[in-house]
């Protein structure tokens, strides 16, 4: 279980990115975070694996305070949390295989890894991860030779190498077209259901939110303004929606696409 208590993040330039945010996530949930750009979604996700240090508040995961860990303990925390990014964040000039293997860095002998030496088991695991996302035939290509959808699958495969208990996905489909969006979220749902991995994912399209989220939190200007389960989001009123997205927002639909794998 992940507990976020009174989390606040103020950047050096004075921007208040998160303002006293508290919520809990049960293991095995598919939590969706919605909110405008700049509402604090990315900051929130990055506070959980401490890519960003929160200013105040606590994050407690499996009874441990995440906000206070350092050094080896911090790396030990990070390796249990997979992360997927909007812009995939692959090392473009490295091969797909090396990108996937880099997911193992938190587990392997640091000195050996510096020479890009990985054990046969790790390589086998990397191939399995690529198989799971259906791009095992691309393993030897350079990452930037792949299409956007394929690159995001590499991102998922990299996260899988960490044997994650939780996956943080920062707008994983915002750079992809709607068809691919369902494919990628389909993989995350599969991991969520089959391997009981907790997923925290920020999304924009309401259709996708309703289709995949088991629970939803809404952020606005760094404050938690909405919280509800899947049923609640399906019944969300225009007023509530506007409260999150502002007066000028209209309901955006991902088109007439039905959910599921494409």
């Amino acid at each position: 279980m992940l507990e976020v208590k009174n989390l606040t993040k103020i950047y050096n330039d004075g921007t208040v990115a998160l303002d006293d945010v508290s919520f809990t996530v049960e293991d095995g949930e598919f939590l969706v975070i919605i909110g405008l750009s700049g509402s604090g979604k990315s900051t929130l996700l990055r506070c959980i694996n401490r890519l960003i240090d929160p200013t105040e508040g606590q994050i407690i995961w499996d009874g441990k305070d995440v906000t206070s860990v350092k050094g080896a303990q911090l790396r030990n925390l990070r390796r249990q949390v997979g992360m997927i990014f909007q812009h995939f964040n692959l090392v473009n000039r490295s091969s797909v295989m090396n990108n996937v293997l880099s997911g193992r860095l938190g587990y392997v002998d640091p000195w050996k890894s510096l020479l890009y030496k990985f054990s046969p088991e790790d390589r086998k695991k990397a191939m399995e991860s690529l198989q799971m996302v259906g791009i095992e035939d691309q393993a030897l290509k350079r990452a930037d030779e792949l299409s956007g959808g394929q690159q995001q699958r590499v991102g998922i495969a990299r996260a899988l190498m960490q044997n994650p208990k939780m996956i943080l996905a920062d707008e994983p489909v915002a750079s992809l077209d709607p068809v691919l969006a369902h494919t990628i979220l389909g993989y995350l749902e599969k991991l969520n259901l089959e391997r009981n991995i907790t997923v925290m994912c920020s999304l924009h399209y309401l259709d996708l939110v309703q289709r995949y989220g088991t629970r939803v939190i809404g952020l606005r200007d760094g404050k938690l303004v909405w919280e509800g389960d899947n049923n609640a989001i399906k019944k969300m009123s225009d007023a509530e929606f506007k409260n999150i997205y502002g007066e000028e927002a209209e309901r955006v639909s991902a088109g007439s696409l039905t959910g599921g794998e494409v």
């Binding site: 694996n49 890519l51 790396r75 030990n76 925390l77 990070r78 390796r79 249990q80 949390v81 997979g82 992360m83 990014f85 964040n89 692959l90 090392v91 473009n92 490295s94 090396n98 880099s102 997911g103 193992r104 860095l105 938190g106 587990y107 640091p110 890894s113 510096l114 991102g155 990299r158 190498m161 960490q162």
Partner: peptide, 18 residues
Amino acid sequence: PIEAIQATGANWLQTIMF
């Protein structure tokens, strides 16, 4: 990529290298 490699639990040197 730096952020992504850090997120895997890599140390500083590994992040530089990868």
